[in-house]
Nucleic acid binder design. Sequence first.
DNA 1: ATCAGTTTGTTAAATAATTACCAATATATT
DNA 2: AATATATTGGTAATTATTTAACAAACTGAT
Lengths: 217, 217
Amino acid sequence: MDKIKINVSMAVIRRLPKYYRYLDELVEKGITRISSKEFGKILGFTASQIRQDLNCFGGFGQQGYGYNVRELRDEIANILGLHKPNNAIIVGAGNLGQAIANYSGFRGSGFVLKAMFDINPRLVGISIGDIKIMDIDDMGEFIENTDINVGIICTPKEGAQSVAKRLTGEGIKAIWNFAPTDLEVPENVIVENVQLSESLMVLAYLMNERDRMENAQ
Amino acid sequence: MDKIKINVSMAVIRRLPKYYRYLDELVEKGITRISSKEFGKILGFTASQIRQDLNCFGGFGQQGYGYNVRELRDEIANILGLHKPNNAIIVGAGNLGQAIANYSGFRGSGFVLKAMFDINPRLVGISIGDIKIMDIDDMGEFIENTDINVGIICTPKEGAQSVAKRLTGEGIKAIWNFAPTDLEVPENVIVENVQLSESLMVLAYLMNERDRMENAQ
DNA sequence: ATCAGTTTGTTAAATAATTACCAATATATT
DNA sequence: AATATATTGGTAATTATTTAACAAACTGAT
């Protein structure tokens, strides 16, 4: 990694995975080079934005040529830290937790699921794929022994904050949160929320807005 | 709804569900009024931002008093269109599809799940709760007869675009997309993406960045 | 009723993000 | 080797978003 701008904005960071995804597709198609102009056309971004974004992390392109697709993909993988292994556990082994346990997107992201935990004795002992559901009281010991650094919260809203407290108490440094609530965690703990209900409400809004527009015509 | 600014930015729209969620909690706690200042403290926003956002849709507050919590919540529900019924189907009845079928967040959002569809004959015929999994070839007829206007795509990446094409061909006007790909749809069709892999990569980036910072100290 | 203290809606200022531009420098062609 | 063409990286201009400021208008207490 050549350079890293001190404060890369979240707007840029949230575009990186999309760059990565499309570059990976280009590699698979056997395309070896691409200009910001072409890439922008594919992504629906301006060429300027792509060049600005990439330049937060280094000058990966070459004048008159563009970007080497494979090289750029690997650089972005590196920036995203996709090569770094991170052991994770899921807390909450209900429908959503089980779906996440089966989630194929872990592959290639560096995250490795090591176990699931639940309070429901009916679930404890079951395996999802090769992942065991364990009692949540065994969680602390497991985290310590297995070098877990990511907790994935798939509990209902009500239990989420207490789970977060327990996880951070055990020294976990990052949480992927699917519970529909904002977690309070110590300053150095990273939380990335997946708010399904918010996404659904935005969809409702956009549908509603379109109706308003049509009626206004 | 008093007024609606012509072009409300997506930044504002994506904050509305959060306003709604917190207002709902305040109603449940029995709090009847709140100022933008207090509300901002709870949400982690500035008071200015809250007043600006709300004023895109109307003057819901009162000087010297603040906002009536219940009233404001109901106004936002109305703006989001949460009272309008929208019949939905899920396409792709694997782990994720089943988890979404059981998703409690549909309640109170106006969306009603009517059926699920899959190509896998092993899944067709099974019920998830009281929702039947049907053969995808029966989808067109079902959409027509049941007044479906939202499709929820939970298929793998590979099948997603063809499903989207089929759905829009049947006249569906909105898609909630969980497949890790960008869908091409006719102009008037709304797509809201839930990109789990992008969220996970952002988490990876932030963890990686924190490590860089710590090593730089 | 009056007055001090609040708090809004709105306008202005400041900040952030995106887009346009262009010199520098590469490639490709003759 | 010379020249035309392409394309970057960085800077400047533009646009969008957020924050600050404040007159107007309400509440609640005396």
